[in-house]
Design a binder for these strands. Structure first.
Length: 224
DNA sequence: GCCCAGGGGGCTC
DNA sequence: GAGCCCCATGGG
């Protein structure tokens, strides 16, 4: 059986190699917390390049504010976020969050100031916010020590033989959070590095041969 | 043409 | 609770 401290060492080794390879990623790429929230919703199943275009449009229209998002006609919002795809559902999601925030006087700090567990549940209750989006908001907008799991993380963890590809979100999240110190900065940089690494490496590449995580695989499965 | 991108909701079984 | 399908633009 692998002791927890050994898992921690392995996870920290992965982190150090990614950090050495790519350097600090300085996430989240946004000017302020509300922009993080908007970006987290818009980037669902969408490349960040397309999200940048939508955010640029929102800023130009002075619409990157909760009140503005509420007041905009749906058709206008469609046009602003059109480049990032799924624009009809995403427009509803942005309005849903803006409507929810109105209950806090449009003050994100007030929303974020409550108990972490309750806050996460509240975020999940909002239309369009699932586990990854909620955790991205908690980590990158509210600076809470919450590890974000995404498709890249799942793929990399699977390739390294740490957990099965089919593991649930909560299983993956627990794996990281129970084997790493509760540190917001560490979680921030770690997830950003996993995404960076996921983008840099070929999806179909067998294992991690030739990449910076080479020979960290505990149970090699060629051709995975 | 194909595949996929920093997911989530709704529906079925 | 798992397995589908739908949402849609833009780049490789």
């Amino acid at each position: 059986m692998v002791m927890s401290s050994q898992l921690e060492q392995r996870l920290l080794e992965i982190y150090q190699r990614l950090l050495s390879r790519y350097g600090p990623q300085n996430w989240w790429p946004a000017d302020e917390p509300f922009e993080v929230v908007v970006g987290a919703i818009l980037t669902q199943a969408t490349s960040w390049k397309n999200v940048e275009k939508a955010i640029f449009n929102l800023k130009k229209a002075d619409a990157l504010r909760p009140a503005a998002l509420r007041e905009l006609e749906l058709e206008e919002l469609y046009q602003l976020i059109y480049p990032c795809g799924f624009y009809k559902v995403k427009a509803l999601k942005l309005k849903a969050f803006a409507n929810h925030l109105a209950g806090y006087g449009d003050d994100l700090d007030r929303l974020f100031s409550q108990d972490l567990g309750e806050l996460r549940q509240e975020l999940l209750s909002i239309y369009g916010i699932g586990e990854e989006t909620a955790d991205s908001i908690l980590l990158y907008a509210a600076n809470k020590p919450v590890f974000v799991i995404d498709a890249y993380t799942r793929r990399i963890v699977s390739r390294l033989g740490l957990l099965p590809q089919a593991s649930s979100y909560s299983a993956l999240q627990s794996f990281f959070m129970e084997n790493l110190p509760r540190n917001t900065s560490l979680y921030n940089e770690y997830h950003a590095l996993l995404v960076r690494h996921g983008k840099e490496t070929c999806r179909r590449a067998p294992l991690c041969q030739g990449c910076c995580l080479k020979n960290l695989c505990s149970s090699p499965r060629p051709g995975l």
